[in-house]
Design a protein around this nucleic acid. Structure first.
Lengths: 217, 217
DNA sequence: ACCTGAACACCGTTCAAGT
DNA sequence: ACCTGAACACCGTTCAAGT
């Protein structure tokens, strides 16, 4: 029995790491546990990620951010296709529909891997897929009538919006509603509105509509 | 020489932890290093934070979020007062000025401790200061003419905006601009706009103005 | 090329003990 | 009440070695 060639690959490592993160949390993703899950010694991972855990983290951010993945290799457990056009490349829908689709897909990807979100703060994917996404954003805003720095600013606003909305949603889910007892007369508005819940999906699309509307020249 | 009563306190632990995070990064904040910096054994920290590192993390999030701190105890190194009104309590400026001041202060606090930002994603302060902030937001939006769920939605949008904008700013600072070589003809818009930088301060206040304008009924 | 095994310098936390 | 010291069960990573 050769104990070598366990069939390890970067993709297999990434998806297994994501499974651990999603199921047990970011802090429980350790090289040793990841090795166990892959039925391999932890040190084998370093052959595919020579720079260690930091390199794995960057790959995870790039993997999650690549919302357009799914045409070819993925044995992933989630459908990542928008509606029904399977073909890659050119999308002939309107600029705001393209941006809306991207925003919805990206939000879903972030929510599906909410435990990985801390990785996103100080890391940004430097891949061709990320560049494709940037091109998609710029082209759409150019088509909307913007130009120059306005395009960059609009793309930044869109990215900021999705990130901020998702984090707000995640933070809200974490903490249970305050018991009314703790909110006394000094906080009348907070007391009156305590427990008011908003439909997060609707909140997101409403805010998205408002943003895209305000960005059009 | 009694080695006891080293003058440890929750506040001293928090500010020292923040100094380590700001100077060396979140991952280098360890109980042992923190103990060293406080000239105490690491285990002494557990007397003030019996639940360990997670409790310390929560305290850090609450500390940074409390933008109104500074009237009494703080020996902090940063001025956290908005303009010149030292008194606590009632603020008679307009509702949008109050919200704008809070947003600018909160953004500054987050940027000053950008290395601590990953802590914010899955934690929200459950303190009286946090409740005061919520009351401030709700009261301002009520004064603006909103009511009921619209107030909660507006507050959520404001919080999301600041978080998203700060994270975008931090992520943009991290990665150096792509070398133009990597951006070939397939990405014409990305190539044309490569290297376009936006003044982050202006971008933030512009977006803030747009948001507050759109939230008014 | 791809993986193992032992080793090093760390971690967070518990627990009994000191003052 | 407040802090120490030793100990336990982990970490990430290096390095030489196996096939």
């Amino acid at each position: 029995m050769s104990r070598n060639n366990a069939g390890l690959s970067a993709e297999r490592i990434i998806t297994e790491a994501l499974r651990i993160i999603d199921g047990q949390g970011l802090r429980r993703l350790t090289m040793r546990r990841l090795g166990d899950a892959l039925e391999v010694e932890a040190m084998a991972i370093y052959h595919h990620f020579p720079l260690g855990k930091e390199q794995l983290f960057e790959a995870l951010v790039a993997y999650i951010s690549d919302v357009s993945r799914g045409a070819s290799g993925g044995d992933g457990d989630e459908a990542q296709e928008s509606t029904e056009d399977d073909g890659e490349g050119a999308d002939d829908s309107s600029w705001d529909r393209r941006l809306r689709d991207w925003a919805m897909d990206y939000r879903r990807a972030l929510l599906d891997h909410a435990q990985a979100l801390p990785l996103f703060i100080h890391r940004r994917p430097d891949t061709e897929a990320a560049l494709r996404t940037r091109e998609l954003h710029y082209a759409a805003f150019a088509e909307a009538g913007l130009s120059g720095a306005d395009v960059v600013q609009a793309a930044a606003a869109l990215d900021s919006y999705v990130t901020g909305a998702v984090i707000h949603e995640v933070r809200a889910n974490g903490l249970p509603a305050r018991e009314p007892a703790a909110i006394d007369g000094r906080f009348p508005h907070a007391a009156a509105l305590n427990g008011v819940e908003l439909d997060p999906e609707r909140r997101f699309t409403d805010g998205l509509d408002a943003l895209l509307g305000s960005l059009r020249p």
